[in-house]
Simulated scan of single mutants.
Amino acid sequence: MKYWKALAFLTAILLTGTVVPHSAHAQTPTQVSYGSQNGDVWDLQFRLKAMGYYKEPLDGKFGAATAAAVRKFQQSYGLPADGVAGSSTWKALKKYSLNRQEMDIMAHIIYSEARGEPYKGQVAVGAVVMNRIQSGKFPGNIRDVVFQPGAFTAVDDGQYWLTPNSTAYLAAQDAVRGWDPTYGSLYYFNPDTATSAWIWSRPQTVKIGKHIFAK
Rank of each mutant, 00 (worst) to 15 (best):
A50S: 14
A50E: 09
A50V: 10
M51C: 06
M51Q: 15
M51D: 03
Y54G: 00
K55N: 05
E56W: 13
P57Y: 11
L58N: 07
D59F: 10
A67F: 04
Q75K: 15
Y77G: 00
Y77M: 01
L79W: 07
G83L: 03
V84E: 03
A85L: 03
T89W: 13
T89Q: 10
W90C: 08
W90G: 09
Y96T: 11
L98W: 04
R100T: 11
Q101D: 15
D104A: 13
I105E: 07
A107D: 03
I109D: 05
R115Y: 12
G116Q: 12
E117T: 03
P118D: 12
K120L: 11
Q122A: 09
A124Y: 12
A124S: 09
G126F: 14
V129F: 12
N131Q: 04
I133N: 06
S135P: 00
S135C: 05
K137N: 11
G140I: 00
I142Q: 04
D144A: 15
F147S: 12
Q148M: 14
P149D: 08
A151M: 10
T153I: 04
T153W: 09
G158Y: 09
G158P: 01
G158R: 12
Q159V: 00
W161R: 15
T167S: 15
A168E: 03
A171V: 05
D174R: 12
G178T: 02
W179T: 14
P181N: 14
T182M: 07
Y187Q: 05
Y187G: 07
Y188Q: 01
N190T: 04
T193M: 02
A194E: 06
A197W: 04
A197C: 00
